[in-house]
């Protein structure tokens, strides 16, 4: 099982906010946002909650579990 996310779509929905601006808003580096979006890095619960709070959405609307080989 892998962790999928709709971070890119959420950024697009929120005035097309840049990765840099999102990174600054949640207190991480831009590279961290890039890695999360690409599914290469699984954020901690704290960071996931910070992202959800920033987008004002429930956590499961941003992150979801996806099966491998799909």
């Amino acid at each position: 099982m892998l962790l999928g996310n709709h971070l890119k779509r959420c950024r697009f929905d929120k005035d097309n906010i840049t990765q840099e601006a999102l990174a600054n808003a949640v207190g991480v580096s831009r590279q961290t946002i890039i890695s999360i979006e690409r599914g290469r890095f699984i954020p901690s619960t704290l960071l996931a909650l910070r992202l959800a709070a920033f987008f004002e959405k429930p956590l499961e609307q941003i992150f979801f579990i996806r099966e491998e080989n799909r």
Binding site: G27, V28, S29, T32, S35, F41
Partner: peptide, 10 residues
């Protein structure tokens, strides 16, 4: 404040 983020630590 955190100097480096969790990915950098990892």
């Amino acid at each position: 404040k955190e100097s480096i983020d969790e990915k950098q630590v990892f």
